[in-house]
Amino acid sequence: TETRTFDSEEEAKKAQKEAEKQGRTVTITRRDDRWEVRFD
């Protein structure tokens, strides 16, 4: 599991799309003013 933090939802969604192309499961969580993206 890898976790990355982004400043914008746009960036988080971009990372999510990339990871899903690779067949990974992605979870996006809102953390205050940041977006946390978890790759499984």
Rank of each mutant, 00 (worst) to 15 (best):
D40T: 13
W35I: 02
E11H: 03
E10W: 11
Q16D: 01
W35G: 00
V37Q: 01
R34T: 09
A15E: 06
Q16F: 12
E10M: 08
E9S: 03
E9H: 06
E9F: 15
A12I: 01
R34K: 15
F39E: 07
R30H: 08
G23H: 05
D32Y: 06
I28H: 00
V26I: 05
R30E: 04
A15L: 09
T1P: 12
D32T: 05
S8K: 05
A15S: 05
E18Y: 06
D7N: 09
T29D: 03
R31I: 15
E18L: 10
V26S: 12
E36Y: 08
Q16P: 00
D40F: 10
E2M: 11
R34P: 01
V37E: 01
A12K: 00
R34M: 13
I28Y: 00
D7S: 10
D32A: 11
R4P: 02
D40K: 06
K13Q: 12
T3I: 15
R38N: 09
K21H: 10
V37T: 02
F39I: 15
D40P: 06
F6S: 00
R24Y: 15
T1W: 15
E36P: 00
W35H: 01
R24Q: 10
K21L: 14
A15I: 09
E36V: 11
T1K: 09
T25G: 06
T27A: 05
E10S: 06
Q16E: 07
Q16S: 09
F6L: 02
W35D: 01
T5Y: 15
R38P: 01
T5E: 08
R38K: 12
T25N: 09
E2Q: 12
V37K: 01
G23P: 01
K17M: 14
V37Y: 01
T25S: 11
D33W: 02
E11G: 06
T29M: 07
F39A: 06
A15Q: 05
T29G: 05
A12D: 00
D33N: 13
A15P: 00
T1I: 13
E10H: 07
R34V: 13
R31H: 09
R38W: 05
R4I: 13
E18W: 08
E36L: 07
T29I: 14
K14M: 14
A12R: 00
D40A: 12
Q22I: 10
K17I: 14
E20W: 11
V26K: 00
T27Q: 08
K21A: 15
F6R: 00
K14W: 12
D33M: 04
T3P: 09
V26F: 02
F6H: 01
A12F: 02
E10R: 06
E10Q: 09
G23M: 03
D40M: 12
E10A: 11
E10L: 07
R4K: 11
E18M: 10
F6N: 00
T3A: 09
R4V: 12
E2G: 10
W35R: 00
K21E: 14
E9K: 03
E9L: 15
I28W: 00
R30G: 03
R30P: 05
D7E: 10
E18H: 08
R4L: 15
V26E: 00
D40S: 13
E9W: 15
T5C: 07
T3M: 12
Q22D: 11
R4Y: 13
R30V: 07
K17S: 12
E18C: 12
A19R: 02
D40I: 13
G23R: 03
E9G: 02
Q22K: 09
Q16N: 02
R31K: 13
E11Y: 03
E10P: 04
R38Q: 10
Q16Y: 10
F39W: 11
T1S: 13
Q16T: 06
F6G: 00
F6W: 02
A19V: 04
T29W: 04
D7Y: 14
S8W: 02
D40E: 15
R4M: 14
V37R: 00
K17Q: 13
T29F: 06
T25Y: 06
I28R: 02
R24K: 12
K13R: 13
A19Y: 14
E11W: 02
D7M: 10
R24P: 01
K13T: 09
R38S: 12
